[in-house]
Design a protein around this nucleic acid. Sequence first.
DNA 1: GTCTATACAGCGATAGAC
DNA 2: GTCTATCGCTGTATAGAC
Lengths: 195, 195
Amino acid sequence: MTIWTTSAAADTASRILDVAERLVQLRGYNAFSYADVAAELGLTKAALHYHFASKAALGIALINRHTSRFFATLADVDSLGPTAAARVTGYTELYARVLRQHRMCLCGMLAADYLTLPEPMRAAVIAFFNRNEAWMTSVLEKGVEDGSLRLNETAADAASALVGAVEGLMLVARAYDDVERFERSAAQLVAALTK
Amino acid sequence: MTIWTTSAAADTASRILDVAERLVQLRGYNAFSYADVAAELGLTKAALHYHFASKAALGIALINRHTSRFFATLADVDSLGPTAAARVTGYTELYARVLRQHRMCLCGMLAADYLTLPEPMRAAVIAFFNRNEAWMTSVLEKGVEDGSLRLNETAADAASALVGAVEGLMLVARAYDDVERFERSAAQLVAALTK
DNA sequence: GTCTATACAGCGATAGAC
DNA sequence: GTCTATCGCTGTATAGAC
């Protein structure tokens, strides 16, 4: 049993997930292969199939790990204890970091590939968005309660608009290879909440 | 020389574009093939290669035709002569129509596939977004001039945010298979312009 | 846990007949 | 303009040795 603290060489399954995650975020689910991942890690395709029996299984593991990590990081944003507007800005900043690596949001990319995905992957993608919206709804509700935000719609509706909008800002900004474009647009979304 | 008025059976190249366009909007550029299109039209792959020598050539033709048609339709929205807010709503309604067919915006989908596209296709995708933003910028500027809109940022910045946001609202709403979700969110974007 | 080897389907693309 | 036939390659996945 290996004890993980920090750094250290990750096990093979983790390294497979690392590479596959990056490739999906860069190229999409249908434009990466076991051969791509294997070559990058100096393994064979057969070795990958030992760790993840099928591409669908790899895909599901990818989404699940990403979702866990993302909401762990979001909890850190919460623990900074700022205002609702600052928290939403923290949320957009998480995505700006992804963009700086020229990557799309993993689940945003999979949303584009959605109709080609096996059902279990679809469900995991939707679960990610549901959690995004639930987090955002909670943040907006607190902002309304403390008077820092004024909404003309329900917090849930405002949250779903924000989550969707951020995905699109990433999608287009990445094509332009222009993170500042994303940041300018995201700042407007936040500003609209407090107007 | 065939005269096109309305309806009538389109020529083969047009029918190829029709099918390929739908498949890209549903599945993405890397998840459709010449075989898919040929089978649907009762042709062979070789016949498709006669009309479009390569997949890249087909892709470029796809974007160019779509761009022409989209801005022709947008001109109709303009000619209705409504206010800036109504024009933006008309813009979002064009995309709602696409969503009702369970399709993503063609260029939004290609933005996801962006890093896998040949350079000429990338340029055509960016040109589409540039024209979207130019149209939207013009609409917003007129709204500011006539006093119907108040912006806290430049019209160009507000336009790029709107265009990007709409793409994301489509992307996520399509995964949820929920056009009303898109419409609720899009209405908020419009409302934020006049607040 | 990783390898070699292989199966089998699909891909984009081409040659040449009709 | 469309066909048959085929090429070379890549895709996911499996069997069995080490």
